[in-house]
Design a protein around this nucleic acid. Structure first.
Length: 307
DNA sequence: AACCAGGACACAA
DNA sequence: TTGTGTCATGGT
């Protein structure tokens, strides 16, 4: 094999998957940096530009979401562990679904959103993005995050002809900015929150990488101690960035879903519903939450989540 | 054109 | 503990 061919080969990989709906997963409000690219998706993971596309395999047509995910980068990769980690392709989804309670709403949601997964995102990007998420629509969160990256993130090498891409700005970089710089990204009242939290993370006063080693309650408390981080955003970061699959973020959509699907008569408050969720959905409650969220969001508006 | 969005926070009662 | 006003911005 020629050297060029080897390099070419190391710029792309095929990961076998089953029950993996790439479009729904990348576009279900857990990550905000993926854009449709032909019949696939382009985005950034860490400091790498990545293009992803799902191909279903012919001999496995009877298995929904079976096939391979083809990933391309523009730089040769020694390993692809970082990608498998991000996409959580090693996760046995059926085993997780098997832990769900056998109730009608969850059956409907898991059936409607077959192949929906949880990603494992970089903690700082996840934390910062969700600080920017409060009372904003997902499309708007994407716009603000995009502004932030293209103004203050390091520019990345991309393939010829591809749109420019930037890394997500580090906590240190954001900590060095002024509030006005951040407000320039249209994040409004969230600017001082992001700035203060970036400074706490950059200074080491809050050790993000250490949080996954803590018990859930303590991990959540550490996050909620940060400016702009309440219960909901803490749970999002625990679930999408730190691997706490029992975390159950309750936003307006999940609130609606729980009330409508589980308590159509009464009208329990958020506290009561969190209590219900914690005791009802089991060790992978966060997955159940994501199914309910996506189910609710796609059922009413017939938004296409395919590129 | 109102209404609302993957909320947090200070302050009330 | 639960309830209100406020904070910015722009999509639907």
């Amino acid at each position: 094999m020629s050297r060029a061919a080897a390099a070419q080969q190391n710029c792309s990989v095929k990961i076998p998957v089953s029950d993996y709906d790439l479009g729904a997963t990348l576009n279900s409000g857990q990550a905000f940096r993926w854009t449709p690219d032909g019949s696939g998706w382009a985005g950034v993971i860490g400091s790498r530009w990545v293009r992803l596309e799902h191909f279903r395999s012919r001999e496995l047509l009877h298995v929904s979401g079976a096939g391979i995910i083809r990933a391309q980068t523009n730089v040769r990769q020694e390993t692809w562990h970082w990608l498998e980690h991000y996409l959580q392709t090693g996760t046995d989804l059926q085993r997780i679904l098997g832990t769900f309670p056998d109730d009608e709403p969850l059956r409907a949601a898991t059936q409607a959103c077959r192949g929906l997964r949880l990603l494992r995102q970089e903690p700082w990007e996840c934390l910062a993005s969700f600080i920017l998420s409060s009372t904003k629509q997902i499309v708007q969160i994407r716009q603000v995050v995009d502004q932030l990256c293209r103004r203050f993130g390091n520019p990345l090498d991309v393939p010829v002809g591809a749109p420019a891409a930037w890394a997500f700005p580090s906590a240190e970089r954001i900590a060095s900015l002024a509030e006005a710089d951040l407000r320039g990204c249209k994040m409004g009242f969230r600017a001082p929150y992001l700035l203060a939290t970036a400074r706490r993370v950059a200074s080491g006063e809050t050790d993000l990488p250490a949080i996954p080693g803590l018990p859930l309650q303590e991990a959540r408390a550490r996050l909620m101690d940060l400016p702009g981080v309440g219960r909901k955003i803490a749970d999002c970061v625990l679930l999408f960035g730190l691997g706490f699959h029992a975390a159950f973020p309750v936003d307006v959509w999940v609130l609606k879903a729980l009330r409508q699907l589980y308590f159509p008569k009464r009208r329990p408050g958020p506290g009561r519903l969190r209590q219900f969720a914690d005791s009802h959905f089991g060790p992978f409650a966060g997955y159940a939450q994501q199914y309910l969220f996506h189910y609710m969001r796609t059922r009413h508006s017939l938004v296409s989540f395919a590129p």
